[in-house]
Every structure is written in structure tokens, then in C-alpha cells.
Computed example of a mutant assay.
Amino acid sequence: MSKEFEIAREFEVDASPEEVWEAVTRATGAYLWPMDPPEPRVGGAAAFGSTVTAWDPPHHLTVRSEDVGFSVQSVNQVEHVIEARDGGRRAWVRYVHSGIFTDDWDNQYDGAAKHTDFYLHTLRAYLTHFAPRPVTFSSADGPEASATREGLAAVGAALGLTDGDAQGARVTARGPREFDAELDYRDPYFIGLRTDTALVRIFGRGVWGAPVGISVHDFAPDADAKETGAAWQDWLNGVFDQP
């Protein structure tokens, strides 16, 4: 049965409205993933077949699609409202994701809401620590064996994280290579690691029936997307004993 949904979040960040606008419109993969940037006009094309319905830089952006192409969703809309704070040195952001889920409403809403919190945390981390540095993006998806409620815990253990490592802790992670990082996000669904040059994002999607995913937003000037993606893919396969 079709039913509307709305996920609204508000936050402040140590960035100007112009910096926030650049982050959400450049679509380089700095905090989400590479995608088609929106055409800078009302009626312009945007990512995934959506259309720009509000364009007022650097204050208001809305993109909407009424032909989403997902079996469980028919309408999708994302809105950003951005206002200056402290004379333009900070920004207040209101983010609203809305639309219509056509099936499995509770599960779809739960997944979308929890992903929203993680994505917006990553946006703030990017703006605070890395903007406007160029990014190299890579990703890896775990095997089907990782699509369980225990999948994220297995990845955390393989990284060397303990139950006592809370958000904000400094850790030495055992990924494809050892690296020092801040555990900048941790809950039962996601793990975020921030180094001096990268954001590593781990998605424990087993609770929603999907495999673990890893994305790496690398701001080092010599970053190699293909090499990084392959290294994390091999490591992730090894966690779940897959060739």
C-alpha cells in the first residue's frame, strides 16, 4: 500500500552557506558518491532522473523525481534550505527527504532515516575537516554472507574495534593496511573512521537485507580509486571468507 514519508533534519556547521551549497551541488563524491550534478536552474536535470524544482543559491535547493524506478518507491524528493549564522561564518541547514513508499513502508522508512543521519554526519565531517579539497571516491560491497544483522559486527571486529571503542575514540584500524583514525561515528548500523586524509564509511545494511558496504572518500593528492577500491574489496571478502 502506497504511503507518503518525510524525514527532516536540522543542524549547524562551521562552514559558510556557500561552502554548504558547493558540497551538496558539486556531486563529486566528497561526502556521498559521484553523481550527475544538478543543472543550475529550475526545471534542470539532476541525478537519477530527477528534476530541479527549487534553485536559489546558496539558500534553497530541491530535486524531485516521480519515476524513481524502485519497486518500493514511486516519488522521491530531497530539499536543502541553508541560512547564514554568525555573520556568514556558520550555516544552519534544514534537510528534508520525502516521497512515497509503495511497499514495505516501515522497513524502507527505518533504513532511509538511519542512512540520512549517517550521510549528514559525513557532510558535516567533510565541511569541517576537508572542504574544498578534491576527492577520490571508491567503494566495495560485501558478499551475500555479509547481509545479516551480525555483518557489521564482523567487520568491526576485523578492523580491531572493541565493544568499548565509542564514538570519538582514537583507534588503530586493521583494514587493507593499518591506519590511525578517529572513530567518528558508531551505532548498530554504521561505522565511520576519519583519518588526516580520508573518510571511511561502513554500512551495516544486513538489518535491511543487504550486504555490508564500504565507501572511501580520499582527499590525499596521490589517491588511486581503483587501487583503494580493490584493496577494500579483497579485505571485505576475506572478512567473510569469500575468494
Rank of each mutant, 00 (worst) to 15 (best):
37 P>F: 09
113 A>E: 11
182 E>A: 12
158 A>F: 08
112 A>T: 11
20 V>R: 08
8 A>R: 13
65 S>G: 15
153 A>C: 01
118 F>R: 07
118 F>N: 04
71 S>V: 02
27 A>I: 14
232 W>Q: 05
235 W>L: 01
25 T>L: 13
167 Q>H: 13
237 N>F: 04
192 G>P: 01
155 V>M: 04
67 D>N: 15
214 I>R: 04
141 D>Q: 08
34 P>H: 12
213 G>T: 00
229 G>E: 12
179 F>G: 04
131 A>N: 14
49 G>H: 08
102 T>S: 07
186 R>I: 06
39 E>M: 10
199 L>M: 13
108 Q>I: 01
9 R>M: 02
44 G>Q: 06
68 V>Q: 07
52 V>A: 02
61 L>N: 01
101 F>Y: 11
195 T>V: 09
125 A>H: 05
104 D>T: 03
31 Y>R: 08
116 T>D: 14
123 L>W: 06
87 G>S: 11
6 E>R: 13
162 T>A: 08
148 T>N: 00
144 E>D: 14
125 A>Q: 15
216 V>H: 04
142 G>V: 05
202 I>G: 03
190 F>H: 09
147 A>F: 02
208 W>F: 14
215 S>C: 02
202 I>P: 04
110 D>N: 10
194 R>C: 11
16 S>I: 10
100 I>P: 00
84 A>S: 13
120 L>K: 14
14 D>K: 08
83 E>D: 15
181 A>T: 02
171 V>P: 03
238 G>T: 00
192 G>V: 05
52 V>N: 03
115 H>I: 15
62 T>Y: 02
129 H>N: 14
109 Y>N: 01
86 D>V: 12
113 A>M: 10
224 D>K: 13
80 H>Q: 09
146 S>W: 06
209 G>W: 04
109 Y>A: 07
118 F>L: 09
161 L>P: 00
88 G>Q: 06
96 V>C: 09
73 Q>D: 02
7 I>P: 00
84 A>I: 11
20 V>S: 06
230 A>E: 12
162 T>K: 13
209 G>D: 06
84 A>P: 12
5 F>I: 09
136 T>V: 15
153 A>E: 09
114 K>F: 07
38 P>Y: 03
16 S>A: 15
219 F>Y: 15
218 D>M: 09
183 L>G: 05
96 V>I: 12
47 A>F: 12
100 I>H: 00
25 T>E: 13
92 W>A: 14
79 E>D: 05
155 V>I: 06
124 R>W: 07
78 V>E: 11
70 F>Q: 06
182 E>V: 15
7 I>F: 03
223 A>E: 01
73 Q>S: 09
1 M>E: 03
48 F>G: 09
103 D>L: 08
219 F>K: 11
214 I>C: 11
7 I>M: 03
96 V>E: 04
217 H>F: 13
33 W>G: 09
8 A>P: 00
100 I>W: 01
72 V>S: 05
166 A>N: 00
165 D>N: 13
202 I>K: 01
164 G>K: 04
74 S>F: 07
124 R>V: 14
69 G>R: 00
51 T>Q: 10
205 R>C: 12
91 A>Q: 04
183 L>S: 04
171 V>C: 05
29 G>I: 12
106 D>F: 07
171 V>F: 11
83 E>R: 14
